[in-house]
Design a protein around this nucleic acid. Structure first.
Lengths: 155, 155
DNA sequence: GCACAATTGATACATTATAACATATCCATA
DNA sequence: TATGGATATGTTATAATGTATCAATTGTGC
């Protein structure tokens, strides 16, 4: 993510927090910024380490979990279930706009690409889904595999 | 799962193991049987407890993980990433037949329903999926929500 | 019996996550 | 100003999940 987009996302993130009557504290900002400026998902423990390296300050893992859970609740961060790691994305991204997302996670380089999926597509995608009478609360799907670039390298 | 289907699945499971040049040991059989006869997913630790209760024998958690990982490798068991738990299914099920599956996981009763998805449907219905040039190795999607029955109860 | 691979046991450890309670900070307002 | 409530963080302990390593056992073919 380039500098301009980062700044704009951080500003928007602050707005989002305020709109929820919550604060955009320095720690929340730092954690979000770390996630926005790394290209691979990070675990809570990795985030705590990163925090120490980048800021000459520190944050407890417990706080990292709380911060992540807060940032998730306002849709600024997502947890990848298949990796137990976390990602962020620009506030101009489809992920932030609360559509259903498909995360393509590369097993080699760990990078994650995001595609948007409409809810109607989801229903269409899975035959008999409507018959099942199941009320989905899921806004993300995860797919593991090999990305374009890694495939080229491996070939 | 009824008794007849259980027996047939266990027999088929033995075949599958032998076809892979591996054994269908008593422990593997017990673990599989526990998974086949529970209606909710179980964690490795829960399986170890269950094993003790049901068999008057026991198995180390380490072994449970090895057994699960083996059973997964021959497609007799699946791990649910969103719950860190494991499920099995009849050998007559679509899941066993290696199609892509969608697991509908109920947040209330924990029960899991399975739908089959063809690979071509997956590619077709995520817009821009082909553009991404991503090679998927995923054979399952997980959806959290509320099942039919629980919804009726809650209403 | 012996060699070999597959399986399991046992111990230790790593990683991920939550519980519980204390403290701090900020803001509205009495 | 102070005080009360909500929000946020610190601290410690512990639970839950998972892996590494090496030894022991079991079964099978020769």
């Amino acid at each position: 993510m380039n500098k301009q987009r980062l700044t704009s996302t951080l500003n928007k993130a602050k707005q989002v927090c305020l709109e929820h009557g919550r604060k955009f504290t320095i720690q929340r900002k730092q954690i979000l910024q770390i996630l926005l400026t790394t290209d691979v998902p990070l675990s809570a423990y990795e985030l705590a380490s990163c925090y120490k390296l980048r800021t000459s300050s520190s944050v407890s893992v417990m706080s990292v979990y709380r911060i992540l859970s807060f940032l998730e609740s306002v849709n600024l961060v997502r947890r990848l279930n298949s990796a137990n790691k976390y990602i962020a994305y620009g506030t101009d991204s489809e992920v932030f706009k609360r559509e259903t997302s498909l995360f393509l996670i590369c097993r080699h380089c760990q990078k994650v690409e995001t595609l948007a999926v409409s809810h109607s597509d989801v229903a269409k995608l899975f035959p008999h889904f409507d018959d099942a009478g199941f009320t989905s609360q899921t806004k993300q799907f995860e797919m593991l595999g090999v990305c374009n670039e890694c495939q080229a390298k491996l070939a």
